[in-house]
């Protein structure tokens, strides 16, 4: 996993609530057995007509946002299915950070496993950044994970909270499985205790 420290880039505004993972990556693209290559189908049904032509007014088809690295969205972003294809598609497109008033649990956790930072900010802050994002290439946002801040193009700074352990893993690009493998003795001990206490398992 790539590390995430700071990111300055173009933010694409997506002012919709309840953006679900079926929208982010429709089911016909879940048939892959790989993690890569999903970027071209990110938001497929909103981005392309049925015969594959670009829908001109969808945000990621507009010139400055084709290079967006940040997405600003409405509440409950990433609800629905647990498909990790959603963060894989975002990442493959080039998006490393999503800012929203709230996220669905599984999507939120999937982001951290893939080097994407989901930033939760109050609605009012998101509204400000959404407006900022609307100004395209003239308005780059800076997301600083170390300082836990998002800086708008007008210099306004918004602080966000992040789970310390997840922050640490993201900053260092750590692999969860490797970390857990170091605790194998504790897992062995747990299994022995559980086998005695709940022998039917």
């Amino acid at each position: 996993m790539d590390r995430f420290t700071t990111l300055t880039g173009i933010a694409a505004p997506l002012p919709l609530v309840n953006v679900d993972t079926d929208m982010i990556i429709p089911k016909q693209f879940l048939k892959t057995i790989r993690r890569t290559g999903l970027g071209r189908n990110l938001f497929d049904e909103m981005r392309f007509t049925e015969d594959g032509r670009e829908i001109a007014d969808f945000v990621l088809n507009r010139p400055p946002y084709r290079k967006a690295e940040i997405l600003v969205a409405g509440e409950n972003f990433g609800c629905g299915s647990s498909r990790e294809h959603a963060p894989w598609a975002l990442l493959d497109f080039g998006i490393r950070c999503v800012i929203a008033p709230s996220f669905a649990d599984i999507f939120h956790s999937n982001c951290f496993k893939n080097g994407i930072l989901p930033v939760v900010l109050p609605q009012e802050a998101v509204d400000h950044l959404m407006e900022d994002a609307g100004r395209g290439a003239n308005a780059r946002l800076t997301v600083d994970l170390v300082a836990q801040t998002v800086t708008a193009s007008d210099g306004r700074v918004f602080a966000f909270e992040v789970d310390p352990f997840r922050k640490h893993c993201l900053l260092e690009g750590l692999d969860d499985i490797g970390l857990t493998m170091e605790k194998v003795a504790a897992i062995d001990a747990f299994e022995a205790r559980a086998a005695a206490a709940r022998p039917w398992l």
């Binding site: 993690r35 647990s82 496993k113 893939n114 969860d176 493998m181």
Partner: peptide
């Protein structure tokens, strides 16, 4: 529910 990275984590650990 869990994501695929977590599926791998559970399979392994």
């Amino acid at each position: 529910g869990i994501g695929t990275s977590e599926v791998e984590h559970v399979l392994a650990t």
